[in-house]
Design a protein around this nucleic acid. Structure first.
Lengths: 125, 125
DNA sequence: CAGTATCCTTTACGATACTG
DNA sequence: CAGTATCGTAAAGGATACTG
């Protein structure tokens, strides 16, 4: 059985699964990881790909993902300075697991929107 | 190519993928869905399984998941009133995609913790 | 038992300006 | 170019009390 149920009171830490997922289940992490699946990208390229993320938040998220070991950060001194990010083996293996979820979301979007409408109109009669 | 990059400016909505993921990538949704994979559970049973979620937040999350069509809510009048939640076909199909991510997290926890320690000790020399 | 209702805290995120 | 620094907002979540 997977330990997903609660915090570990003895060690005062989240259970492993929750501990890991906590850092990849924000608004941007998945998108950032996916943007790198075809090869390394520079900071500004990631920003362009993801679209509407601010510089501050992108930096923040990249640092977390780097810290957890999903990507590497490589600086080529400038000016202009050039920083590229690249998935690690660990990062690739995670993307491999996340991608099916993303594809699933794309495939089932219509069903879900329909379900929401139905739910919201229940008591309008 | 999957449309994960930005909001759809014309329709003023999130792209499909982000729209769907937004409702399952919180702190609790995955855990709640997983708690139901072996069959329906009552409110209190879900609460016990997940562990440290409050009643208010559990209710809130269950409503969202019901609204999106991942689970059904069935009331058996009481007292004591008895409410059970059960995954729908859609819910099961999502769990099927999410589970590999959860297993991956469990399997790679050690690696990630090690990576964090390494990262945090970089400049302590 | 399965919720609501209130109130409060945290944290993720957004906007904008500035810099080596 | 790739950040930092500041300030502000909003949404998620926590604590606690109450109820049909």
């Amino acid at each position: 059985m997977l330990p997903i149920t609660a915090t570990n009171e003895k060690e005062k830490t989240l259970c492993p699964v929750r501990n890991v997922l906590a850092n990849v289940s924000g608004k941007w992490q998945t998108l950032i990881l996916l943007s790198l699946e075809d090869g390394p990208l520079r900071f500004s390229a990631i920003k362009r790909t993801v679209g509407d993320i601010t510089q501050r938040v992108l930096t923040e998220n990249l640092r977390m993902l780097e810290r957890d070991g999903y990507l590497t950060r490589t600086v080529k001194p400038g000016p202009p300075i050039e920083v590229s990010y690249e998935l690690t083996k660990l990062g690739f293996s995670l993307v491999e697991k996340i991608k099916p979820v993303v594809i699933w979301a794309s495939n089932n979007y219509d069903k879900i929107v329909k379900s929401r409408k139905l739910y919201d109109n229940r008591d309008k009669n």
